[in-house]
Amino acid sequence: MGDERVPPGWPDVVRPAGAPGWERTAVTWLLDQCPADYRAYPALRNQPVALAWLALRHVTAQGQANAAARSAARAELREHLTPDALEGVLVALDREHARLLGVHRGVRLVGEALQGLRYVPRL
């Protein structure tokens, strides 16, 4: 985003905290980080702090599942995949790990902002 009002790692699609309509963009993005069925629950859509809390848990669980898969992939898939295919799976898992780290940071930052914490840039 390049906006000095947001911390590094703030999701590009979420407006800066305090800007008009920022909570709506935060809720939309947070819902994108959760299972699609969560959109059906008004209690989650209407309680952004609770949604952020839950989204953080989902992203954390995804990271744990990714770590377990990266740990087990070679041993469990080597008999079923060609070496090139297995390497492709491992690369995909590594890339997903990096993406999830960024999403985790973004969810945490948005959740903190929804709780009223505001980013103050360091000089």
Rank of each mutant, 00 (worst) to 15 (best):
A52N: 00
R24L: 14
R24M: 11
A69S: 12
L117E: 06
G116W: 08
V27M: 06
E96C: 08
H104F: 00
E96D: 13
L56Y: 01
G111D: 01
L77A: 09
D3L: 06
P42C: 09
G106V: 01
L123Q: 11
Y119R: 04
C34P: 05
Q62F: 09
L93N: 03
A92H: 11
L93S: 04
A40M: 12
A98N: 09
L101E: 11
R57C: 04
D3K: 06
R108Q: 09
G88Y: 03
G63N: 06
G2D: 12
E87Y: 10
P42R: 09
P7G: 01
E87D: 15
E112I: 00
V13N: 07
A17L: 02
R5Q: 07
A26D: 01
R45S: 11
V27W: 03
A43V: 11
L109M: 05
V6A: 08
T60N: 06
R70Y: 10
N46S: 13
W10V: 03
A36P: 04
L114Y: 01
V103D: 04
L93G: 03
G2V: 07
R74T: 12
V110C: 01
V49C: 03
P121T: 06
R78S: 14
A17E: 04
Y41A: 14
R70H: 08
A98E: 15
L56T: 01
G106I: 00
R99W: 10
C34S: 15
R118N: 04
R39I: 08
W10Y: 07
A92E: 10
Q115V: 02
R105E: 07
L54W: 01
A85D: 15
L54H: 03
A50S: 09
H58D: 11
P16I: 05
A69N: 08
A55W: 00
R57M: 06
R78V: 13
A73E: 12
D37A: 15
A98S: 12
E87P: 05
L54G: 00
N46V: 03
G106D: 02
Q64K: 10
R74A: 13
R95D: 15
G102P: 08
D84Y: 04
A67V: 12
V49D: 03
A61S: 11
G63M: 10
H104T: 01
L54K: 02
W22M: 08
L117D: 02
V14R: 00
V91W: 10
V107A: 00
E4L: 10
N46L: 11
V49N: 02
T25L: 04
A19F: 06
A73G: 10
E112L: 04
G9P: 04
P83E: 11
G102S: 14
A43D: 15
Q62D: 12
A98L: 14
V120S: 10
N66P: 05
D94S: 14
